[in-house]
C-alpha cells in the first residue's frame, strides 16, 4: 500500500470509530501564551480531562514581547509552537504579515456570539477581557475611590497609578483605542491623546505587564491600576486587599483568542485544543481559567465583585482597526507621554 493510501485508509478507519477518535489525540502540544500559567492551568486541566494523552506545554511572555518573539521565529521559518494565545488584534496583526496560521473553524464556533468571531477564520475567541480600575482597599476607601477614567487625572492620585506600557503589553492597545478613538467619536470630547499626557503629569508608572501592576496594586506600591479583569479575578482568588471599579465611561472589552500554526507538529492536538476552547465545558470554567467573560451567551456569568454583565457598559474593541494601527498608536502614546 502506498503511503497516501495508508493515510486515507487510516482516516477512514478512524472515521468509522466515531467518538473514539477523540482519544486518538496524543503527544506534546506546545502553546505560546500571553495568558499567565495560573490562568492556563485550569484550562489545561479541563482539556486533559477530555484528551488525557495530550501533554500540554506552555511558554508565557507578555503579549507584545511574544509578538516580537513570534515575528523573529517566523522570519527564520521556525515557529516553535503549535498554538498561540494572544488577543484577536495581535493575532490578526501577525496573520497580516505572515501566512503562518491555519484557518480552522472549531466544532461549536457557530454558538459563539457572531460579533466576537474572527471574520478571517484564523483566531478562535476564548473569552472577553475588559479594562477596569483596580484599587488597594487598605490605601483607598471605597467611597473615595475614583469612579471614572477621567478621575485618574485628579491631583489626589499623583504617583499612585500604574498602567501597562504598549511597547511590552499587547492588551493596552485596546485601552489606547478606547480613549483616543471610541470615546471622542462617541461624544466624550475630553478624551484624546492628551489624556495620557495628563496621566504622565500625574506620575503614572508604566509597567511591562498587567500582572506586575496587579502585584503593585495589591502591595500598595501603586494603589490604583488600569487593569484587566483577568488580574482582578486573580487578586480575588488570592485574597489580595483589592477591589474593582467599573468606570462610568465604560470598559473596552478585547477578545482573548487562540490560533494554530500552519506548520504545527501536532495539528490534531492543536485542533482539539481549539475545539475545546469554544466548548461549553471550557466556557463554563473560562471565568476561573482565563479570568474573563465567556463568549457563549448561554453561560451564566457575574464578575468577581458580583456585578452582573448586564450592569456594565462593555465596549467591544475594534480588533481590525488595532491590528492595522498598533505601531502608530504606540508612537502616538510615546509622543503623548514625552510632552
Amino acid at each position: 500500500m502506498k503511503l497516501g493510501n495508508l493515510k486515507t485508509g487510516s482516516v477512514a478507519v478512524l472515521a468509522l470509530l466515531g467518538p473514539a477518535a477523540a482519544s486518538a489525540q496524543d503527544g506534546p502540544l506546545q502553546i505560546y501564551s500571553a495568558y499567565p500559567d495560573e490562568h492556563m492551568a485550569a484550562l489545561i486541566e479541563g482539556f486533559n480531562a477530555k484528551y488525557p494523552d495530550v501533554e500540554v506545554q506552555v511558554s508565557v511572555q507578555p503579549g507584545e514581547q511574544l509578538l516580537s518573539t513570534l515575528e523573529l521565529e517566523l522570519r527564520a521559518n521556525a515557529p516553535q509552537a503549535d498554538v498561540v494565545g494572544l488577543n484577536q488584534a495581535s493575532i490578526s496583526s501577525l496573520a497580516a504579515d505572515h501566512g503562518a496560521f491555519a484557518e480552522y473553524q472549531p466544532e461549536g464556533i457557530a454558538e459563539v456570539r457572531e460579533s466576537l468571531r474572527d471574520p478571517e477564520g484564523v483566531s478562535v475567541p476564548a473569552c472577553v477581557n475588559v479594562y477596569l480600575i483596580q484599587y488597594n482597599t487598605n490605601a483607598i476607601n471605597a467611597e473615595a475611590a475614583p469612579t471614572s477614567w477621567m478621575d485618574l487625572t485628579a491631583p489626589e492620585w499623583e504617583n499612585q497609578i500604574a498602567m501597562a506600557d504598549p511597547s511590552s503589553s499587547q492588551s493596552i492597545q485596546s485601552f489606547l483605542w478606547f480613549v483616543t478613538q471610541y470615546l471622542p467619536q462617541n461624544g466624550q470630547d475630553a478624551f484624546d491623546w492628551d489624556y495620557f499626557t495628563q496621566l504622565q503629569a500625574n506620575g503614572v508608572r508604566l509597567e511591562g505587564s498587567h500582572g506586575t501592576i496587579r502585584d503593585l496594586t495589591a502591595a500598595g506600591e501603586r494603589p490604583l491600576g488600569i487593569q484587566l479583569l483577568a488580574n482582578g479575578q486573580t487578586s480575588a482568588n488570592r485574597g489580595d486587599p483589592t477591589s474593582l471599579v467599573w468606570p462610568t465611561e465604560g470598559s473596552p472589552g478585547e477578545v482573548s483568542s487562540f490560533a494554530m500554526f500552519e506548520e504545527s507538529d501536532n495539528p490534531e492536538a492543536a485542533q482539539a485544543w481549539l475545539d475545546f476552547i469554544v466548548s461549553p465545558d471550557a466556557q463554563a470554567i473560562m471565568p476561573d481559567a482565563l479570568g474573563c467573560a465567556p463568549v457563549l451567551s448561554e453561560i451564566d456569568y457575574a464578575f468577581p465583585d458580583g456585578t452582573a454583565v448586564s450592569d456594565v457598559n462593555i465596549v467591544p474593541v475594534d480588533s481590525a482597526w488595532i491590528a492595522e494601527n498598533r505601531e502608530a498608536q504606540t508612537e502616538a502614546f510615546q509622543a503623548a507621554m514625552s510632552n
Binding site: S59, V60, Q80, D215, N231
Partner: peptide, 23 residues
C-alpha cells in the same frame, strides 16, 4: 533570545516577577 525552547532560570524568574505568578 527567549523562545519556547530557550526559557532559562533567569527569564522564567523575570516572567514570574512580571505577573506570571507574582511577586
Amino acid at each position: 533570545l527567549r523562545g519556547f525552547n530557550t526559557q532559562t532560570i533567569s527569564t522564567s524568574l523575570l516572567s514570574v516577577w512580571n505577573g506570571n505568578g507574582g511577586l
